[in-house]
Amino acid sequence: MNTRALPLYATIAIFLLAYLLAWTQFPNILSTRVVGNLLTDNAYLGIVAVGMTLVILSGGIDLSVGSVIAFSGVFIAVVLRDTGLHPLVVFALLLLLTTAFGAGMGFLIDRLAMPAFIVTLAGMFLARGAAYMLSIQSVPIQHPFYQTLQGAYYLMPGKGRLTLIGVLMLLVVVLGMVIAHRTRFGASVYALGGGEQTARLMGVRQGRTTVLVYAFSGAMAGLSGIVFSVYTGSGYSLATVGTELTAIAAVVIGGTLLTGGAGYVFGTLVGVLTMGLIQTYIVFDGSLSSWWTKIVIGLLLLVFILLQKGLLKLSGSRLAGGAA
């Protein structure tokens, strides 16, 4: 068995185990209603986490996404309020904007050989500031098209609602899997994460790959912003503070190596759902403070970092053993 897939199996096992434990206590947690809500409530996080997965696989980080989601919501709400544009046109404009924003950050990271951390940190402040500039208040969205989007769902057996945004999230995960595992661009992303120097020697176009990976993350953040605005029905510049960190946590819990080069997009979905499950459990319990979510996520993160370290050690010692 490939040791690389171990974190993924561990993630899936932990998720199933947690679900089983929750189910023995609250049998209702297995209903299609809960499952549907799990997808809907975490749709925006799942989408942005897919973008984050590719960035982390390439050995980078994107701290701007939380602010970009907030900016997207405010942008959509303000443009819809002040102009007569159709939401689909606004969506297209927004995606162009956030993709270009991501590409710009990727360009700076590559050209100036700057750490992604600091460039995207600047992007985070920039996007948040732009959101404030558009509006400090929460702006409600009252376009009839939004009502259609919010009302679009498939009623599963057991009265669970499979919403449009939930399905969209699943589609994005599939898209992410195809890009990461079945394209040359995806291979280049893994190569960069494995070692820049080596990747260049193997013929990876480093600049192009870096720009594209941050552009992809920007596009996903924009899409996530659209989904979030559909979910909340408004745009608010103070929304989704710290979402970038939650997304990073989901990626790492999903088994992706934070230093890049190893991981699976599917694992990120499991990571997002695991975090959602913890939240659901706390809601079901009713007596637990919502802070327990953070504590459990913190512990999970720690477990996964230790697991990855252990795996690295394991494969390292086996290498040394083979060479000796």
């Binding site: 490939n2 690389r4 893994y190 190569a191 994460g193 494995g194 080596t198 990747a199 020697l201 080069g261």
Partner: peptide, 8 residues
């Protein structure tokens, strides 16, 4: 070895 140990 200038190859990527993290890939197959």
């Amino acid at each position: 070895v200038n190859l990527l140990p993290n890939l197959p």
